[in-house]
Each structure stands twice: as structure tokens, then as C-alpha cells.
Design a protein around this nucleic acid. Structure first.
Lengths: 148, 148
DNA sequence: GAACACCTTCACATGTGTGTCTAGGTTAGA
DNA sequence: TCTAACCTAGACACACATGTGAAGGTGTTC
């Protein structure tokens, strides 16, 4: 398929597709007239790239992982093991964080679905401008859903 | 504690802490001389902010979620429910993706720990410059670990 | 062949996270 | 009192993902 359809199916811009290609993340075929020709496999890969970027990976990092994560050989990846280990840590932290957020969001939504208009003015949690001095902590609630 | 200690304990720069504060994500107390005074709760929150940013959230998004995820009221969040639902989708997709990547990485590492020097030259998977024309797809492998 | 919708490359612009430098104030120790 | 190590605010700079516009080629349809 050509660029327009690909971008529409992925929900991203053609510009982004070209960007990923330019960053050597995506290798897109061409038709005889020079038009890009996206395959289904291109689409899948592009979608993953998209998600990775949306997850905070840079194109550089994605490129680096690309070799390590390929189905085949390990050769070019050897030098990158430490990098991958770092990344693993990061991924695990992020997964945990996302889990927390996920449940937190669900809980919050549940609350909202019940009494929406119940509490009217709600403290906004941040008090950025108010409170000129030292006392900005919450009473030391330990876990991840604790604001501030 | 003051800025230096905070930044060291978090493993991020003072500049970043100030940035988050300036973006209204973090509300830090001051001592009488104007120095920032970070509380333990500040640290936890800053750590979470850090992870969120590293996970691809912008400060703007984090700020938007801040109200919704607070322990207390739902008031200012009401308008943001759709946004949160979108985010939820995103989060779930990312979690799945991270899971895939995670296992993929683990498998790859396992392979590497066995025969490292076995395969010598390995195809690099991307062939960006070679292959001037149409034939760049992999044979349509369907799932997430399929390269290209 | 004119119109139109697609495609191409190139280049400049913008937003955002972060680095880094400047210029100066504060605090503690010799 | 001098010095070093901390702190502050502000500004300029960079990388990166993206947007956008220019200038032009291709293909289809009337």
C-alpha cells in the first residue's frame, strides 16, 4: 500500500513514517516510480516503533535494541548486553509504575462514576502558588498513589 | 533536605527538579533564606514524575492527570475523564508491548549467555542501504517479535 | 491536456526535556 | 576575613519528535 493508506491505518502521519525510515528503524520498499510501498510487516513494525517512542524510547535506543531483539543472530548485539540490562531494569520499573497508574486510574474512575458532583471544589492537590514556606509535604503516605 | 541531596538521592539533576517544579508538578517548600527544602514526599513524587516522563508522558499530561489521581476530590478531574480513558488504552498497549519486549530480551540474553561467538557476522536485520527496490518485507511473520 | 490527488525531497519551525553557563547570595570552616 | 561549597534565578543551547510549506514529479480521470 502507499503512504496515505499506511498512515491512515496506523493513525500516524506520513511524516512520522518517513522519519522512522530516515532513522533506519524502518526499511520501506519502493515501486518503480519511487513511491514508497508499505507492506503489512512494515505496518506492524511501524506500529511498534510508534509505541516505543510513545513509551519514551528514542529512535536511537530503538535502533540499538533492534539488533538485539531480532529473531536471528546475536552477533552485533554482543557489545550491547549491558545496555540491554539497563533497559531491562528500566522496563521493569516502568511496568510496575504503569501497573500502579493503571489501578489508580481505574479506582479513580470508579469513584468518579459514583458521586461526581458530590465534592464540589476539591483542593487541586498542588497548591503551587499558595503556601510560601516550608510546609508542603503530605503527612508521609508511603505508596505510589500518594500525591505530592 | 536541600537540592543537592535530593538530586543525588533521586539520581536526577537539580535542573530537572527545578523544571518539574516550574511545570507545577512539584510544590517544594522553602527555607527562610529562599533555599528549596525537599521533603520525603517531594522525593517520592519527583521520582514518579521522573518515571512518567521517562515513560513518554509530557509534563502537560502529568499535570492533567495530577488532579485525577489525587487521593482526594474528583472535582477538577471531571472534564478529563475521556483523556484518562485514552491514556488507559495507551497504558495497556504499552504494558503489553513491554511484556513482549521483556520476554524477548530475556530470551535473547539466554541465547547470548550460551553460544556467544558461535554466529559470527549476523545479518543486522535492517538492510537499510542495500536493496534499492521493492522487496523489503520479511515473509509476513505475524507477531510482535517479528523484525521489520 | 487540464485537474486533481497522490507522491517525492528539502528545509525551516516548534515544543519539550535537559544541559550548561552566568551572576550572584548564603553558610561553614581555616 | 577569605575560601569553598553550597544555594538561587535566568538565559541560551541542543537533541529529538513533529509540523508545515515549498517545489516539483506521477497517475488517473474527464
Amino acid at each position: 500500500m502507499q503512504a496515505k493508506e499506511a498512515s491512515e491505518r496506523l493513525g500516524i502521519t506520513q511524516r512520522m513514517l518517513r522519519h522512522y525510515e530516515k532513522q533506519d528503524l524502518l526499511s520501506v520498499g519502493r515501486t518503480l516510480n519511487g513511491y514508497r510501498r508499505y507492506s503489512e510487516s512494515n505496518l506492524r513494525r511501524a506500529g511498534r516503533i510508534r509505541d516505543f517512542i510513545a513509551t519514551g524510547f528514542s529512535t536511537r535506543e530503538i535502533r540499538a535494541m533492534s539488533a538485539c531483539l531480532s529473531d536471528d543472530g546475536s552477533g552485533p548485539c554482543v557489545g550491547g548486553i549491558e545496555k540491554m540490562l539497563e533497559k531491562l531494569e528500566h522496563i521493569e520499573r516502568l511496568k510496575a509504575e504503569l501497573d500502579d497508574r493503571h489501578t489508580a486510574v481505574l479506582e479513580r474512575l470508579a469513584v468518579l462514576k459514583n458521586g461526581i458532583s458530590s465534592s464540589d471544589e476539591t483542593v487541586e492537590t498542588m497548591g503551587t502558588t499558595t503556601d510560601p514556606f516550608v510546609r508542603h509535604e503530605t503527612p508521609a503516605v508511603p505508596d505510589a498513589t500518594d500525591p505530592q
